[in-house]
């Protein structure tokens, strides 16, 4: 079978790769027998290979310094441990973050659902003296506290509970009547009192005890 010079050169290259089958080998041999140009090409390729391999061996045929197995074990384990530590740290941080988000969410929900008043400290009421004179007080630094009306609550009982007056509660809530309903939300004014004289002994308790008979607080004595 006749082949061109280009095909022959291609076969010469594949021959250098040990990639020719039997038929191709025979075809190439027959061409090279009669073609001096392709024979010269094949010789040049062989010369390149004959120089290349010894040059590489001379340069690279060294022996390595034997690896220290201790070093390999330590570095392999260190990298593994570092990965584990990083992974654990990431997991813990993620849990903490999620817990924080969850608690914020729960806190925001509890404000709407909880019927109990918000945990606000009620400022102390001055201890009543035994003198029977009446007293004027001035209301200063009032803040509003949200309260949800419970069953059997009246405006009077609520006022007594928070040491304030029905009138103050009605004023704080723009109420025209003393009527309150269960689950109604009202603002309880919590104020810092500045006594301008002695206090009427019939005045307020600091703690809410519904069984005690309510006493009306009259600022004007």
């Amino acid at each position: 079978m006749q082949i061109t010079h280009a095909e022959a050169r291609r076969l010469i290259q594949f021959n250098a790769d040990d990639a020719l089958d039997k038929r191709q080998t025979i075809t190439l041999s027959m061409h090279l027998k009669d073609c001096s140009e392709c024979r010269a090409y094949a010789e040049e390729i062989k010369e390149v290979e004959s120089i290349l391999l010894p040059a590489m061996r001379r340069r690279w045929n060294l022996q390595p310094i034997p690896l220290l197995m201790d070093t390999i074990h330590v570095k392999r384990n260190t990298k593994t441990q570092t990965s584990i530590i990083l992974a654990t740290r990431t997991a813990v941080m993620s849990v903490v973050f999620l817990a924080f988000i969850f608690s914020v969410w729960q806190f925001s929900l509890s404000g709407r659902q909880n019927p109990s008043p918000l945990p606000v400290s009620i400022p102390p009421v001055p201890t009543p003296s035994t003198q029977s004179t009446s007293t004027k007080v001035m209301l200063q630094n009032c803040e509003g506290m949200m309260y949800v009306v419970q069953e059997n609550d009246t405006l009077e009982s609520i006022a007594y509970q928070f040491a304030t007056s029905k009138e103050d509660i009605m004023a704080a809530n723009n109420m025209k009547a003393e009527t309150v309903r269960m689950a109604m939300e009202i603002i309880i004014p919590v104020c810092n009192f500045t006594p301008t004289g002695t206090i009427n002994p019939t005045i307020l308790a600091t703690t809410y005890t519904p069984s005690v008979s309510p006493t009306t607080f009259t600022p004007d004595g």
């Binding site: 590489m56 690279w60 045929n61 060294l62 022996q63 390595p64 310094i65 034997p66 690896l67 070093t71 390999i72 570095k75 392999r76 990298k79």
Partner: peptide, 28 residues
């Protein structure tokens, strides 16, 4: 495989010290 890995690294980087380093890194 130590020697063959070393020679591969050496044939690419050309420096025996660096090739030793690469051999260690390869096995790790």
């Amino acid at each position: 495989y130590e020697s063959s890995v070393f020679r591969l690294a050496l044939s690419i980087v050309g420096d025996p010290a660096e090739a030793n380093e690469i051999t260690q890194e390869t096995f790790i």
